[in-house]
Write a protein that binds this DNA or RNA. Structure first.
Lengths: 176, 176
DNA sequence: CGAATCCTTGATTTCTTTCAAACGCTGTGG
DNA sequence: CCACAGCGTTTGAAAGAAATCAAGGATTCG
């Protein structure tokens, strides 16, 4: 990904969506389905965005010539797996507030990585998207946001968000 | 993995475990941390088991010589990612009963793959392990088992389990 | 045989969802 | 330029699902 933002999702039998991940600049879309050619996820842009397409077969050939690229690529896939397992932990043992705090801090550090403000940014996704990602309903996400704001940890105005007290946000998760 | 069974888990700050996955014969342990050399998970055997250790650096060298191995390895990591994302779906939008049914069917097909009975097997893990994996408490897992048994879908006796009505088990998830 | 662990069941509490409704923003067409 | 439709967000009240608390029973292993 070059710029903008995307979400990946899967549709279940009843036609309802479930968000499997968000993508910010510098990140890689489509790590699942690598080499298998079948992708479980659909992906849509959440705003005007730009990407750089990398044909896997070419990358594969190239990494066969360049051991360091091969190694790097293995490392990337390994990290992707680790990341997915962290989500597993998040969903299986965190409360709604812990999940939301973790989500916000995650976005923060991902924005920081591309030199955006880690404390003040626009949420590219809807509350509903966040809920589907975290396994919560829209209403719960909204309530948690309101709650965190009331505690003075964040400041939200529609899509604008500012993390006022990162330390306390971390503490919410840290208790766990 | 050659024989037996393992579980992977992570410990959180408060020292409590959370199971991140189970491994049956023919499956690969340690896909996370590939090439990064740091593993987020610990893994223990659940019974007498045997494994075959594959030093990653050697596999990496070999797959550099054999394009087909490289391709296969990429495919395996891709599948691992897909699998983890399915767990994401499971945890974020399934009820306790749906998760449990899905878990049992998953075990069933994994046993089938290694020519074990897909309908009658021993659970290598405790109820507590299952709960930690599915994001449920022991008590809930136990209650769901009892409930499924009462409905005639399964027959459980401690670690022995028999899936009596796979179709109905599938229907539980399928509704979703 | 006894201790430790695992499993089950019941009663109660807590958290999140569901249902319902109102508000606000955004973009479009008259 | 304004009115209005549509979507996203927020809030409240009630219902529901799973967790927690508590305790007894079963199984395993030394």
């Amino acid at each position: 990904m070059r710029s903008g933002s995307f979400k990946s999702y899967v549709l279940n039998n009843s036609g309802q969506g479930r968000v499997s991940g968000f993508f910010l600049p510098g990140e890689i879309i489509g790590m699942d389905g690598i080499a298998s050619k079948t992708y479980a996820n659909s992906t849509v842009a959440l705003e005007h965005s730009s990407i750089c397409e990398i044909p896997f077969t070419q990358l594969e050939k190239l990494s066969h010539q360049l051991p360091s690229l091969q190694h790097h690529f293995f490392a990337i896939t390994g990290n992707e797996i680790t990341k997915d397992q962290q989500v597993h932990t998040l969903l299986s043992s965190y409360t709604a507030e812990e999940r939301t705090a973790s989500f916000l801090l995650g976005l923060s550090s991902r924005y920081a990585r591309v030199s955006f403000s880690p404390t003040r940014f626009l949420l590219p996704m809807t509350r509903s998207d966040i809920g589907e990602y975290l396994g919560l309903t829209v209403e719960t996400v909204s309530r948690i946001f309101t709650g965190l704001q009331r505690k003075g940890l964040i400041e939200v105005n529609n899509r604008e968000i500012e993390l006022l007290d990162i330390k306390s946000l971390r503490a919410i998760i840290g208790d766990h």
